[in-house]
């Protein structure tokens, strides 16, 4: 049984179609890149999986469950946005995650935060944008979830931070869980991915492993991406 199974997803915003008859199956233990230009439907797809967007048609099963309270217990989502208010302290965010998520591992989080030298007592508002993003990543990855959804974690972040993100994903790797990471900075990320999914205008354009692409097309995913999505 696949970890994530979507069939016939349709999502429209007025007369614009974000997802059109989108179907995909994702097994456990994979790190998957969701690639596509802006507006292709990547974020819509990810948001549908976490339950903050409901598609007009189609079904989603996460670990066999429908999207709802039970699925949210096993899905860990990192949005592009900052989602804590500035007045909150770092320590409070740990308490919050621990309170609401049974799978949160405080020790892992504390360890990562000390590596990043983030003071627990500091207020979110006093942290730089990059540090705030790293904090959110730490919180999300410190959960022992089955599905990790990272929406553009690398956008606007310096190379050292990108390295940290990839390292965290690799360290956290588990055979029972899968990581879905949407990005357009493919060359950085390619070595870390098992499979890639290309979404073009709301449809599934490609779903292959990185190895397959290199062997069949004799090019990197980055190069193939440029070809598939050429303007």
């Amino acid at each position: 049984m696949s970890l994530i199974k979507c069939e016939g997803l349709v999502k429209k915003y007025g007369n614009m179609t974000a997802l059109s008859d989108f179907s995909i199956e994702i097994p456990e233990g994979r790190i998957i890149g969701i690639l596509g230009p802006n507006g292709s439907g990547k974020t819509t797809f990810i948001k549908s999986l976490c339950g903050i967007l409901r598609p007009e048609a189609g079904t989603i099963r996460i670990d066999g469950k429908e999207v709802g309270i039970e699925s949210k217990k096993v899905v860990s989502y990192l949005p592009e946005r900052p989602y804590f208010s500035s007045a909150v302290r770092v320590k409070d965010t740990l308490d919050f995650f621990e309170d609401f998520y049974g799978d949160f591992d405080r020790k892992t989080a504390l360890h990562m935060l000390s590596t990043l030298q983030i003071d627990l007592k500091s207020k979110i508002g006093s942290l730089s944008k990059g540090t705030r993003e790293k904090l959110q990543l730490v919180l999300v990855m410190s959960r022992k979830a089955k599905v990790y959804l990272l929406d553009e974690p690398m956008g606007g972040v310096d190379p050292a931070a990108r390295d940290f993100i990839l390292k965290t994903i690799l360290t956290n790797y588990s055979e029972d869980a899968s990581v879905l990471l949407s990005t357009h900075l493919i060359s950085d990320v390619e070595k870390v991915l098992d499979d890639v999914v290309f979404i073009k205008r709301g449809r599934l354009a490609l779903h292959k492993s990185v190895d397959e692409i290199r062997m069949e097309e004799k090019k990197s995913v980055d190069t193939l991406f440029r070809e598939v999505f050429a303007c």
């Binding site: 903050i52 309270i69 998520y101």
Partner: peptide
């Protein structure tokens, strides 16, 4: 923005 956190909690 905080809605991104609140609506992904395992609560209705």
């Amino acid at each position: 923005d905080e809605g991104y956190l609140m609506h992904t909690l395992p609560v209705s």
